[in-house]
Amino acid sequence: MNIFRLAGDMTHLLSVLVLLLKIHTIKSCAGISLKTQELYAVVFATRYLDIFTSYISPYNTMMKLIFLGSSFSIVWYMRYHKIVRRSYDKDQDTFRPYILMLPCLILALLINEKFTFKEISTSFFLFVMWTFSLYLEAVAILPQLVMLQRTRNIDNLTGQYVFLLGAYRALYILNWIYRYFTEEHFVHWITWISGLVQTLLYADFFYYYFQSWKNNVKLQLPA
């Protein structure tokens, strides 16, 4: 564990807590994309399939349970909670998740690390699911970014949520650089490239978020 990775995990945790805070306290999910939340639930479900078989540390298991629990409860709130669901604007959330999931699944079948880790006991299925979750996480924010462009006035909590979600993967990139230089043969192109793509997708959001913070004006993304 290094400071970049711990900071990344805490930022990720904070993003989830900000969203849960928004939904649970003001009982509103205005401006939040249900499609992105559902994609994230799939990301965690497919990434943590081995939560009960491969134990790493109390921290690791606890964080996995938190991410699984929070992502599924956010989806539940937005779909079934009688008050929250009313504030969900499905006409603005029109991105079709399958056009993201299918290519990621095909790509995971074609390009995964199973071939370099032949001696590993992990089953091919787990490898493919884990790789699928990496690719899917890289693009899972797209429905939310599209929705932000359509939503004229983005409220602060939503803006902070997206910012923290983007920042966590940027911190992970620093973690991978750190681990590359401190641990021999720590090379994971698949994770690095998908993590880089994920962070680059936030580039324009970061720019407008920084501008709104610097000029102290409301955050707005150009349509």
Partner: peptide, 10 residues
């Protein structure tokens, strides 16, 4: 059995 080193990350 050996575990994929990458799996130690979330």
């Amino acid at each position: 059995p050996l575990r994929q080193p990458m799996h130690d990350e979330l």
